[in-house]
Nucleic acid binder design. Structure first.
Lengths: 356, 356
DNA sequence: CTGAAAGCGCTTACAG
DNA sequence: CTGAAAGCGCTTACAG
């Protein structure tokens, strides 16, 4: 690739075989550790390979290989997020299908129980599993370990399962995601005043981590007092009512951090209350509605976490593991925190829509 | 890929040929428009392909194809930026080399004249060119057009050549990059006061666009008065002197937008002047020094523009064009504006270092 | 421990 | 307009 020295034909196993007066099968053996080769021959082959700068041809390899690899994928995510993850999966599929990869996708489970049942169903068909668990609980952790024990490597994404022996996790660090929101809020509120934290009714580990990160950042770096977390849920009217109560109780409040997926309703509530100008909103993720809120200046910033890559990487990692026996270098890929504001929205919006 | 319908072997050209009692050569002809095929046969083949859901196998295709494709790449960029671009190039190379792609890279030119000369040198060897021009001038534009006329498709990256008939541009929109910096500055300075703009001595189109974007954003959205642009250059002492003059002249100044690549020196100047706390810095791009400045809180934010992708995409686009005859859907890929602050630095830092 | 041969799914002359 | 055959660089039984 370097400089101008080009044009020479690539070295093949055949070249090495000819040079050493060996059969190509023997050469293949030393590279793939199948069958046995005398130490002397082995040495010669490796040396010749080094000398001729041999790089195996993946095309030929996978074309001739008989083994296929079937990867199961299971997740339950809101549609607008899931569809972005899916584009990453699709990309990986197109990249690897000619190499013998097949995908079995299950995404329509309603709860953890059903997710487990669906994964069990696909078990006879798959050699590996990529899964976005609902919550990092013990039961699901045990389930994952049982899969691993039965020889199915597992990669988690979007939501980790740290107690399990998963091969890898691909997704956000939710504490950092919270700190990030804290830093933005700090800038928007000019280091002072009060900021409220909004969560949803059920407890979710993710959300708890976001809240903790947010609070920590502010207490370490800012004069802003964080209030809450407030559980805000229900329909439009009920959200408006709850937001109103919060603002009445904390008249100094000039920012709201929405750690849940309720950003749109909170924004609408502020509008209904005529408090839009006064209160800065920070939340997560991009969809059609969030984009509109950013454009209108009704949300100051939203933090995204590479949804596309959360689909692509697990498939890639599992493929490499199954087909090449390659262990991932680290045991997690933490996605970047993408700070999206009005002026840099359009690039992320395009990506979200899939017209890159 | 969808659902559970898996396991069936992929349809091949052989399957289609057998089903229709044709030779595989004929089937191949209809897919690749080589040689002539009777309209009737053509119809039958296409119908069968649709019915059997035929997808050609890229592996087999490129393994048997005789044509190679040699892509020339020419850029002159600061090392720390260039090395990130290069990782994208490397990635594309690894993805496509088995498909018959070779790269000829030239990156050591000192000026435009030399860059043109070096490209001329590699001309006999290449089928396409990806180039990051120094400045979007007319002369270089004519040069690019002459290449295109002689049958060499050209993709520009990092720096566009809008007057030329290049196939595509991959890189930043510098006006938007300026607006983005304006929005950040507006938040950091709480919508008021003065912000200075720092550029370097020579006029560069890029930098002019950044400055214009910055000013426009502020005048449309903020109470901040933009001052400058000030030409700041030379060694450490001279930069410190110039920065000092600016601050003396504009005592209200609480932010500096560095549109040039002088961020480190300006930051050091502020430190030497004891004005670090008072003045918020915003600049571009990530390298080891910028990362350190962000960690220390001496720079508030830096805007990056997907350097990795600026290397990857041009190679991919040219490969698809040469080997598949595929025209790009749009004629530009505008990279995203990545807002990097202290709390979300580490993800970008890792990417910059290449240990993803 | 080593080799000869078939085959993966396609393209490419060559022949008709 | 169509077909038979060799070949791309590897893997995979099978044989020795």
């Amino acid at each position: 690739m370097r400089g101008y020295e080009v044009k020479e034909k690539r070295t093949t196993k055949i070249d090495i075989a000819q040079k050493l007066n060996l059969s190509i099968a023997t050469v293949d053996r030393v590279f793939n550790n199948r069958g046995s080769v005398s130490p002397r021959t082995r040495e010669l082959v490796l040396e010749a390979a080094r000398e001729l700068n041999y790089i195996p041809n993946k095309n030929a390899k996978y074309l001739s290989k008989k083994v296929r690899c079937n990867i199961g994928i299971s997740y339950l995510l809101p549609e607008w997020f899931g569809s972005q993850v899916e584009r990453g999966i699709q990309q990986a599929y197109e990249e690897f299908r000619d190499f013998g990869m097949q995908l079995i996708i299950s995404k329509d489970a309603l709860d953890e129980k059903e997710q487990i049942r669906k994964i069990r169903e696909m078990l006879p068909e798959i050699d590996a599993l990529a899964v976005a668990p609902w919550e990092p609980g013990t039961e699901f952790s045990d389930f994952i370990n049982s899969l691993i024990d039965s020889g199915i490597p597992v990669v988690t994404f979007n939501n980790d399962m740290p107690l399990s022996r998963r091969l890898m996790y691909v997704g956000s660090d939710y504490v950092v995601a919270g700190r990030c929101a804290g830093q933005l809020m700090d800038a928007f509120l000019e280091h002072r005043g009060e900021a409220g934290i909004v969560i949803r009714s059920e407890h979710l580990t993710n959300m708890g981590q976001r809240v903790a990160g947010f609070r920590n950042y502010l207490s370490e770096n800012s004069g802003i007092r964080a209030q809450g977390p407030f559980k805000v849920h229900g329909n439009m009217e009920s959200v408006a009512e709850q937001v109103k109560e919060i603002l009445v109780r904390y008249p100094q409040m000039r920012g709201i951090f929405v750690a849940s997926d309720n950003l749109v309703r909170v924004a609408d509530a502020l509008k209904a209350l005529g408090e839009e100008e006064k209160v800065s909103l920070v939340g997560y993720d991009l969809n059609e509605e969030h984009a509109e809120l950013l454009r209108e200046g009704r949300v100051r910033s939203v933090i995204c976490q590479e949804p596309y890559r959360q689909g692509y990487e697990p498939v890639k990692v599992l493929f490499d593991y199954l087909m090449e026996g390659r262990l991932p270098v680290q045991n997690e890929i933490i996605t970047k925190m993408e700070i999206v504001m009005r002026e840099n929205l359009e690039g992320y919006y395009k990506e979200m829509k899939g017209d890159v």
